[in-house]
């Protein structure tokens, strides 16, 4: 069964599933609406034997990174002077890459959510245990909530961290070590 056939079968149950315009190179890429994420993955896992979750990550599409996120950096001046690219939108995009070990098919699924307070996506905890820490990392870096995750706490940054570092508009507040 190829990726296209899996797509046609899944689209029958989930009409919001689309083939993405901006494909990730060499990975069949689909976009999935936020509310169907968990159901789609459940079906991929049970029916099409996609048992191995490679990556859960996110991108912030709201434009070039703010130089205020870097304490005292001369390096950022180059990037910050660039004009906002045409693709700047006020969204977060959660990216999943999943593999079927038996058949070797790999897929990339992307889910766009509006970039506002309380942005959330259903969690994949329970279907794939690999989602546990990767979702915590995405929460730590972007502030995206994963509904249904039993332990959504900061994992990499200390408890004293204010703000979500990987957001493009993150402003670093100097603390006692700066």
């Amino acid at each position: 069964m190829t990726a296209e056939e899996i797509f046609t079968k899944l689209q029958a149950s989930f009409s919001g599933l689309r083939i993405a315009e901006a494909q990730v190179k060499e990975y069949p890429t689909w976009t999935v609406p936020a509310q169907s994420v968990r159901a789609v993955f459940e079906q991929l896992h049970s029916e099409f034997s996609f048992g191995y979750l490679d990556v859960v990550t996110a991108t912030d599409w709201s434009g070039p990174v703010s130089p205020k996120g870097y304490p005292q950096s001369p390096a950022v001046a180059i990037g910050a002077a660039a004009a906002p690219p045409a693709s700047a939108r006020d969204v977060f995009e959660v990216v999943y890459i999943v593999t079927a070990l038996s058949t070797g098919i790999k897929l990339c699924l992307r889910c766009e959510i509006p970039r506002k307070e309380g942005a959330s996506v259903p969690s994949l905890y329970g279907i794939f245990m690999a989602a546990d820490w990767q979702e915590r990392e995405v929460y730590d870096m972007f502030g995206i909530h994963f509904e249904g995750h039993p332990n959504l706490k900061r994992i990499l940054t200390p408890e004293t961290q204010q703000g979500y570092p990987l957001r493009k508009d993150y402003e670093h507040i100097p603390d006692k070590f700066d």
């Binding site: 870097y70 950096s73 200390p158 570092p165 070590f177």
Partner: peptide
Amino acid sequence: FYDSYSVVKGVDKI
């Protein structure tokens, strides 16, 4: 990593 938000710029700060 001198311009990172999470790095202490030298251990002699502490």
